[in-house]
Design a protein around this nucleic acid. Structure first.
Lengths: 214, 214
DNA sequence: GATGATAGTGTTGATTTTACACTTTCCACT
DNA sequence: AGTGGAAAGTGTAAAATCAACACTATCATC
């Protein structure tokens, strides 16, 4: 017997997570290949159902840790998806999250629902299961907004020490637009979000100063 | 028998709506007095459970129309509230919406759950049922952000034709900060979001030109 | 016709944003 | 050891935007 007078329908509620990293010079998204119907064999965003004793943020964090072994720094809830027919199994409300992390920190694991988990370059990511194409697109739009508002949002994609050129290239990847080197450096250096280190990255060229999040 | 392998918990999902209007020179929020337990007799935000055949936006619109008789123009989904213990009756996920409208358009109706519905000035609004104080505060913060980003967001609070002084006073109410008259007018007039009318509001003083949304 | 109250109107300085090009430093190669 | 290639690093000027600021105009009322 329900405690509610009008006995509301009770959808399942899931957190679906757009987990992005930087690999092979591009943004890649963590996808799982579905092991069961519906959409068997198709790629989907990782996610899982909200459990009794957790709120949505905790659910997203738990799912993410199950999937990647990584405890994420910040996760960003960015939209709900609630079309009645978005899941053929029945009513599922999806709360979408965005998380950024470093591919090197991740040991991919298959899980209950996922036959396989893999990083996929964004460019070749189409025809995901359910409405996950739409969720992914919304995540990327949000990522771009956040990066423009504060490039420090992108730090979790990078190692603890990074060069400004590297940060700039990630910024350009996420926003889709090239920016002027001097203006970008000025902006970031004056933002107080980074501190210069007495260390340099050496390569075939002039060594580049390393910076760390402030 | 569930279509899901892991038989997820099934919370109720509700849309709760912060409906604001302008009354007596202040922002007021539409509240309903709870007719049943829990929180019997306390004020709460209007809202209701997601039904089988509707998505969240449709749910919010339907609830709002039931409560006010007004079909809202834009509604803004701004946050989820999902603490496991936020409703003593059981698990309820609340999706919070913000809507603006004109008090004159509204015929308040009591509804199933609501013994009474009334506009309440924000200043005197405390100790709402559930976590609705928090939801309301989040709504006001979001309103302020939206208004600053684009004062046209506030148009639904105003009649179809309004003076710039009136728009400015609403802007100041929502953002909490006074702004310079000339700067504000310049900003709004150059935004292309309003058009001047050949009509004036007459009072005890110099007539003020009326404007309409572009 | 004087008073009171709101409408209406431009300019200036400060700040922020954008555009733009050359020198430095290291490695690798010869 | 000298040269060439490649990315690192650096400053300035013009443009656009934002912020501050005070007086005149017009109506209603008395």
């Amino acid at each position: 017997m329900s405690a509610f007078c009008d006995d509301p329908p009770r959808p399942a509620v899931a957190a679906d997570i757009v987990i992005l990293c930087l690999r092979e010079g591009a943004l890649q998204v963590l996808l799982v290949r579905r092991g069961g119907d519906p959409f068997r064999g198709r790629w989907a965003l990782p996610g899982g159902f909200l459990q009794e004793d957790e709120d949505l943020d905790a659910c997203a964090r738990r799912e993410m840790e199950e999937e990647t072994g990584v405890r994420p720094g910040r996760i960003l809830q960015f939209a709900n998806f609630s079309q009645p027919d978005r899941d053929p199994r029945g009513r599922v409300i999806s709360v979408a999250y965005l998380a950024l992390l470093r591919a090197e920190d991740v040991r991919l694991k298959a899980s209950a629902d996922a036959a396989e988990a893999a990083w996929r370059p964004l460019a070749r990511t189409r025809n995901l299961a359910f409405d996950h194409d739409v969720i992914l697109a919304a995540a990327l739009a949000r990522l771009s907004d956040e990066a423009r508002a504060d490039p420090a949002f992108l730090f979790p994609l990078l190692p603890p020490a990074f060069t400004l050129s590297r940060l700039q290239s990630v910024f350009e990847l996420t926003t889709g637009r090239p920016v002027d080197k001097r203006n970008f450096r000025k902006l970031v250096e004056e933002s107080g979000r980074i501190q210069p280190l007495e260390a340099f990255e050496r390569g075939a060229h002039r060594p580049a100063r390393l910076f760390a999040p402030a």
